[in-house]
Simulated assay, not measured.
Amino acid sequence: MPDDAEPGTVRPGGRTARVREAVLRAAEDALTEQGFTRLDLADIARRAGVGKTTVYRRWGTVTGLVADLLLDMAEQSAPRTETGSLLGDLKANARLVQRTLTDPRQGALFKALIAAATCDAKTATALHRFYDIRVREWAPCVQQAVGRGEVPEGTDAHEVVRAVSAPLYYQLLISGGRLDEAAADRAAEAALAAARAGAYAGDGDGGEPA
């Protein structure tokens, strides 16, 4: 089949899937190496070993490709861990974020994507969607904790999950502090203490998905 075949015209798992995988990994490489502002679809096609027409036809723009990359990253992220306690679940979440952000490739990739989101509205929207998917994945652990009586009724599950990862991103991007498992555990413990005190209960969504 020629390189400019319309995506979706071959069976799932066939050439279309292989092309998407190759192009997304090439986009990751380019973002990690040179940042968002120097991304070029022709260069990414060359790196992926596919025809330029395929890349332009399927993704259209750099921001379209970045949006698909973020969707793929959300889909590939590790699933929620259930330990039987909210502290255990939040620590599992925090350690997953910590491992991701300290990974040489993934950490650099997230820095590039966050930087791009500050100056490109479509990338910002795609990044927000990525985090919304991940927060929704982990929110049930807080909803289950409400049922067990670990945190008050009406606790906003999404805000609790966000509170876990926020200090880790702060250390990655702002403070330059040590981003290790101890930092991850402290973030989880602080979020739990705030939730138990009712900091995330009240006028929020009560932990139910929006």
Rank of each mutant, 00 (worst) to 15 (best):
T100P: 00
P12A: 07
D132Y: 14
G49Y: 11
A108W: 01
G49T: 11
E159Q: 15
A139H: 04
A30Y: 03
L70G: 09
P104K: 01
A201G: 08
G107M: 01
D72Y: 08
Q76D: 13
A184R: 11
L87M: 12
V142S: 07
C141L: 06
V161W: 10
A116T: 04
A126Q: 04
A187W: 10
P104S: 01
A210M: 09
A124D: 13
D29C: 05
L86M: 07
A94Y: 09
L24D: 07
G198V: 02
R148I: 02
A27P: 04
T37H: 05
E137K: 10
V66I: 10
R136K: 13
A191K: 09
E75W: 03
A124E: 12
A126S: 05
D156T: 02
A199C: 12
A45Y: 03
T54A: 15
D103W: 10
D68M: 08
A190F: 09
G177I: 07
Y170F: 15
D89K: 08
L70M: 13
T155K: 02
A94T: 07
A30F: 03
I133G: 02
M1L: 09
P152Q: 03
L192G: 07
T61N: 04
Q143I: 11
I44D: 08
S175N: 09
A78F: 00
D89Y: 08
Q98Y: 06
V135H: 14
R196H: 07
R15H: 10
Y56M: 07
T83E: 10
L87Y: 11
A194I: 05
G154I: 01
R95L: 11
I133L: 06
T118R: 15
G202S: 07
L173Q: 10
A193I: 06
R80T: 14
D89F: 08
G49A: 10
A182M: 11
G204T: 10
